[in-house]
Computed example of a mutant assay.
Amino acid sequence: MNNTTGALLIAVVGVCLLSGCVPRIEVATPKDPITINMNVKIEHEIFIKVDKDVENLLKNQSGLF
């Protein structure tokens, strides 16, 4: 057996051994249904800062709004 044949034999054995290590990806659907809880409570406060002139106008003429 010469060096070329030995190297070829090692390469073939290496490929055969590595071919068994193929990664496998499996996608499966879940057995239970997916539940999404959407009970969300949103609270917010809005603060408006106005000039003194506008604030006085709103106090004096309360029928605007």
Rank of each mutant, 00 (worst) to 15 (best):
40 V>K: 09
51 D>P: 07
62 S>Q: 12
40 V>W: 04
2 N>E: 07
54 V>G: 01
45 E>W: 03
25 I>V: 15
28 A>I: 07
17 L>K: 03
31 K>Q: 10
63 G>Y: 11
47 F>L: 14
40 V>Y: 09
42 I>M: 06
58 L>H: 00
15 V>C: 06
44 H>A: 12
22 V>A: 05
40 V>N: 12
29 T>E: 14
30 P>A: 09
54 V>Q: 08
52 K>H: 08
6 G>Q: 10
64 L>R: 01
38 M>T: 15
32 D>R: 13
23 P>R: 00
54 V>W: 03
8 L>A: 14
26 E>I: 15
19 S>I: 04
35 T>Y: 15
30 P>N: 12
47 F>N: 11
47 F>S: 07
29 T>C: 06
57 L>S: 02
5 T>I: 09
47 F>V: 13
63 G>V: 05
29 T>Q: 14
33 P>N: 13
38 M>H: 11
27 V>H: 10
32 D>S: 12
1 M>V: 10
23 P>G: 03
49 K>M: 09
46 I>Y: 02
64 L>F: 02
60 N>P: 01
9 L>G: 04
51 D>Y: 00
42 I>V: 15
61 Q>W: 00
28 A>W: 04
3 N>M: 11
11 A>F: 07
29 T>A: 14
60 N>M: 01
19 S>T: 08
7 A>H: 06
63 G>F: 13
65 F>S: 01
62 S>N: 10
42 I>Q: 05
17 L>N: 04
54 V>T: 08
58 L>Q: 02
16 C>N: 12
46 I>V: 15
8 L>R: 12
64 L>I: 06
26 E>A: 14
34 I>L: 15
